[in-house]
Design a protein around this nucleic acid. Sequence first.
DNA 1: TATACTGTAATAGTTAACTAATACAGTAGT
DNA 2: ACTACTGTATTAGTTAACTATTACAGTATA
Lengths: 123, 123
Amino acid sequence: MEFDDKLPIYYQIKQYFYHEIIVGRLALGAKLPSVRQIAVALTVNVNTVQRALAEMETEKVITSQRGKGNFVTEDVQRVLKLKEQLIQVQLKQLYEELKALNIGDDGMVTYLKQYIEMRREND
Amino acid sequence: MEFDDKLPIYYQIKQYFYHEIIVGRLALGAKLPSVRQIAVALTVNVNTVQRALAEMETEKVITSQRGKGNFVTEDVQRVLKLKEQLIQVQLKQLYEELKALNIGDDGMVTYLKQYIEMRREND
DNA sequence: TATACTGTAATAGTTAACTAATACAGTAGT
DNA sequence: ACTACTGTATTAGTTAACTATTACAGTATA
């Protein structure tokens, strides 16, 4: 896994698992790999993984059970809400950034369409 | 100015001035406030400002002149290119994030339009 | 009950970003 | 020349994120 050195690793790990959960590669109630397995797989320290999972539990997306493992919540609403949150954050960021560059509402849509088209070609 | 504690301050300062330049509030060839003035205005240390400006000079968006000040480049192309870069970065981020959430090309555009509409209402 | 998994906690050390303070160097107006 | 601006450099100290290591605590299974 590649990390952006401008953002905390624990934060990026959290985001990564959130994606996995939302997309369904980690189903509701599914068991996550052990903290030690994750640490090895991502070549980071156990403590860093722990910090990411701790935040995920605070946000009630996973539940930790000592001796057993970490499990994705069974609450579908929680996951759906999480998905909407992530999307909103991204849209907000794009919107404010482009607005700060004096790009109007129509311009944003046009830019996005152009970008999508450009990606389609380069595949 | 408000800083995102997840990103380095010097980086956010750089981004801030890039916006000011692109939008034209800092014209081509214009003189920036002195590093000490900026530091006071943003309530950060002079060294942090210095680091931001140093990167801006490396990227040839400004030129520093000892004893005189920092000046925006006269090169229009440089600024236009910078603007495109910033836009691309944002579009890429949105695209990859939404793609990671299993949202297709059409979905992205729809989401953005919805978001823009939502912002229009809350103003 | 021993063994091997789990999560969790604590300690110590490293690094990057940032602050604070001081000093130095170039420019300009008096 | 003096003064007051500029940018630049250096040193020292703080903090957050991260690593490394060790230990502890709960669970499951042979």
